[in-house]
Structure formats: C-alpha cells, structure tokens
C-alpha cells in the first residue's frame, strides 16, 4: 500500500459519496446515467465475489462492501425511489449495455491470466470497469449543461484512475517482479476516456464558468 493507491481509493469513495449525497439531498438524479451505475455495480459484484473466501486485508474488505453498498443505493434511488426515479433522464441515457458487456465478456474469455470461473469474472470486471463510464460521458455530451455535482463526480472518478496509474508506476519502481499488464492496459484505456472531459472541466474551472461540453 502506498500513498497513491490510498489517495485513489479515497477519491473513488468520495466520487460515489458525492453522487449519492447529491441524489439524496436534491431528490434528483438528472444528468446521471443509470446504465453507468448498473455497469459499475456489475463490475463490483463480479470483482469482489471473492469477498467471502479470499481475505486479503480488512482495508480491502471494508472498501469492497462499501463500494457494493453505496452503488446499490444509487441504483436503488434511480430505479425505485418514488421522487428520484421521475427525474431520471431515460430518453437520453440510451447507450446499449450489450455494446460494452459482450466485447468485455468475449475478451475476458480470450485474454486472462488463468482459465477458471473466478479469474475470468475478475478479468471481465477489469475490462468492464475500463468502459463503464461511456454511457455517462455520452449522457453528459447530450445534455451539454453539466451541473456542478455531476461534473465533480466524473472529475473525481477520473482523478481516482490517475492516482492508480501513479500507484502502478510507484510499485513498478519499488517492488521487484511486480507486473500486471492486463490491469495496466485496461487502466490506461480507462483513464484515457476521461482526458477529453478533463480538458473541458479544467477550462471551465480556470475561467470560473459553468461546465459546458461542446457538441
């Protein structure tokens, strides 16, 4: 465990909490992609399936439970809460699950470190996490005017990924024999997806303007 990794995990948690609190406080989920949230839930469930038999550390276990719990709450709010569900932007959140899930499933069957069910599910979760933000980015693009909290949510998520890359660089430099190609390449692709958003987020912040994405 290094400081970059810890910062990454905290930022990840913070991003989810920002989103959850926004929904809870405003009773609105306008601008939030349910597809992305459900994909993240699928990512967490397939990756943290080992929670019950593979104990690594209390730190990891707590984060796993919290990630699954908070993301489930977001999905619950968006699908079931009587007021929140009415604010869901269904007409714009049209990204097809299958476009992301199917390629990730095929890829995880073809490229994995070991051919067994849990390893393949874990690999699937790594691939799926890399692209799960896409429905959210498409929704932001479509609705143009991004409210502050939604913008901060995506920014914090991107920052979390950036810190994970720093963590890998640090580990590569300090841990002999450390390598994780599958995770690195997926992680680089995932972080790359945020670059465009980052550019506009920083521009808006510099000019202290509201974040607006170009068409």
């Amino acid at each position: 465990m290094n400081l970059f990794r810890f910062a990454g995990d905290i930022l990840h948690l913070l991003s989810i909490l920002v989103l959850l609190l926004k929904i809870h406080a405003t009773k609105s989920c306008a601008g939030i992609s349910l597809k992305t949230q459900e994909l993240y839930l699928a990512v967490f469930i397939t990756r943290y399936l080992d929670l019950f038999w593979n104990f690594h550390s209390l730190y990891n276990s707590v984060f796993k439970v919290v990630y699954i719990g908070t993301t489930s709450m977001i999905v619950w709010y968006m699908r079931r809460h009587r007021n929140v569900k009415l604010t869901y932007d269904r007409d714009h959140d049209t990204f097809r699950y299958l476009f992301l899930v199917a390629p990730c499933a095929v890829l995880s069957l073809l490229i994995n470190a070991r051919y067994n069910l849990f390893e393949i599910l874990w690999t699937f979760s790594i691939y799926l996490e890399a692209v799960a933000i896409l429905p959210q980015l498409v929704l932001l693009q479509r609705t143009k005017n991004v409210d502050n909290l939604t913008g901060n949510y995506v920014f914090l998520l991107g920052l979390y990924r950036a810190f994970y890359i720093l963590n890998w660089v640090y580990r590569f430099a300090t841990e002999p024999g450390y390598s994780a190609w599958l995770v690195w390449i997926s992680g680089l692709i995932q972080t790359g997806l945020y670059l465009d958003f980052f550019y506009y987020y920083v521009q808006a912040w510099k000019q202290s303007k509201k974040l607006q994405l170009p068409s």
Partner: peptide
C-alpha cells in the same frame, strides 16, 4: 507469477 495472485488492489 505475481499477476496470478495480484488481487491486492481494489
């Protein structure tokens, strides 16, 4: 191979 057991990250 370290990659096989490298599930120490979240």
């Amino acid at each position: 191979r370290k990659e096989l057991e490298a599930k120490d990250e979240l």
